[in-house]
Amino acid sequence: MSDLTIPFLFQKSVALSSYRDRQFRGNEVEQDKKLLQSTTLYVGNLSFFTTEEQIHELFSRAGDVKRIIMGLDKTTKTPCGFCFVEYYTRNDAEQAMRYINQTRLDDRIIRTDWDAGFIDGRQFGRGRSGGQVRDEYRKDYDPGRGGFGKRFNPALEMEKGGLVV
């Protein structure tokens, strides 16, 4: 079938989100332009135990994957719950945005977003403890992401009586 689509419809899932990488080198117009032509996705909320193989299995269902870059904890060099998936074509990347975003991998609802393209160094977590910033002070216990937030002290909270696990 030919690809007849209502124009106002086809953009919702592939539109840019409000997130912008603050360490992007360039102004916001350039950044947006890059994002709009990108074939690379940021994938978030992964379990620390999810492997490149699993990510490949899921994301190759949207199209031919060029490469996967696992996000690593900058001190331990172990996966810290995110990755970049690069496709050969924009169309395949859009399919992933449409059909994989907010579905499950390794029993977790994962999130995909456009990325301006991988540059070396971005595979490392930017939190002070080495992982992702979002895992620094996280208050819930998430066994897939190393338990409590690294800089969050459950024992201390417990004493205060403020924590319900």
Partner: peptide
């Protein structure tokens, strides 16, 4: 103009 307000009814204000 048909791409304008692509969110359909403007329900996507996140960008």
């Amino acid at each position: 103009g048909r791409n304008r307000n692509g969110g359909g009814g403007g329900n996507h204000s996140d960008d």
